[in-house]
Design a protein around this nucleic acid. Structure first.
Length: 462
DNA sequence: GCATGATCATGC
DNA sequence: GCATGATCATGC
């Protein structure tokens, strides 16, 4: 069957909306339980009637359209989200560096995509899942500027002989995700003798979530920039230039300048300052298009006069059931640090607290940061392994006097563990406990990045 | 002064 | 009610 126009193609695609894969699958491909990528193949073979291939060219070559069948899910709070990243073509490290973006394997194959979204549901067999909607997708101009920059970052790393250090956190929308049967799927790379994991270009899960919400639910994200600006500057440089006029001002002065009520203890105060100085006052940071698509999370850092953070940086409370039931490769904490970019918003105090309890923080600058692969695979992995070991062998939990009360002590990793990360309790009050998978009961715990580690990241801050 | 456990305050 | 960012308090 030949589709002469994209309109014809889309008409055919839309015929599948609302149908389950079982209904579409005329060759009974799905009865063969083990074929991975099977749902996409059902669409290729049964709906569009063409042979499966792994061609470098788009699936519908004459229309320049690549077909992608991809799942979304509903979160507990009812919001739609992509179920996974969208994996595109495999990167040939030896060849990709010889291209420009315009001649790249990514652009040749994926510049126009027919995205067929299906709804993933827990505990439902895949053949019973249904196609929800089909979208003919081309990249919006400003997204494309960010993706071009991402592609440059990836190819530069390959060219520098660092393909084995690629991480999805390096880039904003376009990632280089690992793709292969296992860690043994290694490939040669230029300018280094180290073999690197096979990787594919991918659109990050956060980017796909934004697409799902836009096309399936008509959610509106608010952009902080324009494609014109992105043609001249990277997203990071744009952020730096938006923040730089406020350098050296106190939080109070900034709030006055921006017409934001000064509520330094309010949890929404810093987010409101950020959205205001980005020119989109009141927009929740998660609804800022660029932050949402690139999975950028902000963190406030307050530095003491000596340049060290006032406190270590806390993250989520630990879900010990999850922590002990996952392989390291699929672990929550590993995924978090690989896939999250952090926007550090840095303030400094000019006086010590004991000299002035009402001291003001002054804005010092920002830093976009993601954790280096070596840190994730060494120090963070050590933490993950040590917690697992302690839960398997039993955590030492003791109660000792402290002032007039008893205090709970444990032997989870402390600040001297490995210089990067440690574990500390975090509950609402003395009663805020969790039960560990081994049955022990302990105050809720949280993982932290050491203040000294954070300080070392900010050394080059101008 | 720092490490570490404890808990407050806010916002959903 | 709870998660989370923020910050306190004691003892070494």
């Amino acid at each position: 069957m030949e589709y002469l126009t994209t309109t014809q193609l889309m008409k055919k695609a839309q015929k599948a909306e609302g149908k389950s894969f079982k209904e579409i699958d005329i060759t009974n491909r799905l009865s063969n339980k083990n074929s991975k990528g099977g749902l996409g193949q059902v669409i290729e073979e049964s709906l569009f009637g063409y042979k499966i291939n792994s061609n470098a060219k788009p699936d519908f070559e004459h229309l320049n359209v690549e077909l992608k069948v991809t799942p979304f899910k509903r979160n507990k709070n009812g919001k739609l989200a992509a179920k996974e990243r969208l994996v595109l073509n495999i990167i040939n490290y030896m060849e990709e560096i010889n291209y420009t973006f315009e001649t790249s394997s990514f652009w040749k194959k994926n510049q126009q995509m027919l995205l067929m979204f299906y709804e993933w549901l827990p505990y439902v067999n895949r053949e019973d899942l249904k196609v929800f909607k089909s979208v003919l997708f081309t990249f919006p101009e400003s997204d494309l500027e960010i993706i071009k920059h991402d592609w440059e970052i990836i190819t530069k790393k390959i060219r520098d002989g660092k393909a084995h250090e690629l991480s999805e956190g390096d880039t904003n929308y376009l990632g280089a995700c690992s793709k292969g049967a296992n860690k043994q799927s290694l490939r040669f790379q230029p300018n280094s003798t180290t073999l690197a994991m096979q990787r594919a270009f991918s659109l990050k899960q956060s980017y796909m979530t934004a697409l799902v919400r836009k096309h399936l639910k008509k959610d509106n994200l608010v952009s902080l920039t324009t494609s014109g600006e992105l043609k001249k500057k990277s997203l990071e440089d744009i952020l730096i230039s938006r923040f730089s006029p406020y350098k050296g001002l106190s939080a109070k002065q900034i709030s006055e300048n921006l017409g934001v009520a000064y509520k330094p203890t309010g949890k929404s105060f810093i987010p409101l300052l950020i959205s205001s100085l980005l020119g989109i006052k009141g927009t929740k940071l998660e609804n800022i298009e660029e932050f949402s698509k690139a999975n950028i999370q902000f963190k406030t850092i307050r530095l003491e006069p000596n340049g060290k953070p006032e406190q270590s940086m806390s993250f989520k409370n630990i879900d010990f059931q999850l922590w002990t039931n996952e392989e390291w490769e699929n672990s929550y904490i590993r995924k978090t640090f690989y896939e999250t970019k952090f926007l550090f918003v840095i303030f400094e105090f000019k006086e010590k607290k004991k000299d002035n309890p009402n001291r003001e923080p002054y804005f010092k600058g920002i830093k976009l940061w993601n954790m280096p692969v070596t840190t994730i695979e060494n120090e963070i992995k050590q933490l993950w392994e040590e917690v697992n070991r302690l839960i398997a062998t039993g955590v030492q939990i003791e109660y000792k006097p402290y002032g007039k009360k008893l205090r709970e002590y444990n032997n989870f990793p402390k600040k001297n563990f490995n210089g990067v990360t440690h574990i500390r309790p975090k509950g609402q009050n003395g009663e805020d406990k969790v039960t560990l998978p081994n049955g022990q009961v302990i105050t809720k715990q949280c993982y932290w990045l050491n203040d000294t580690y954070i300080a070392s990241l900010l050394k080059d801050l101008n």
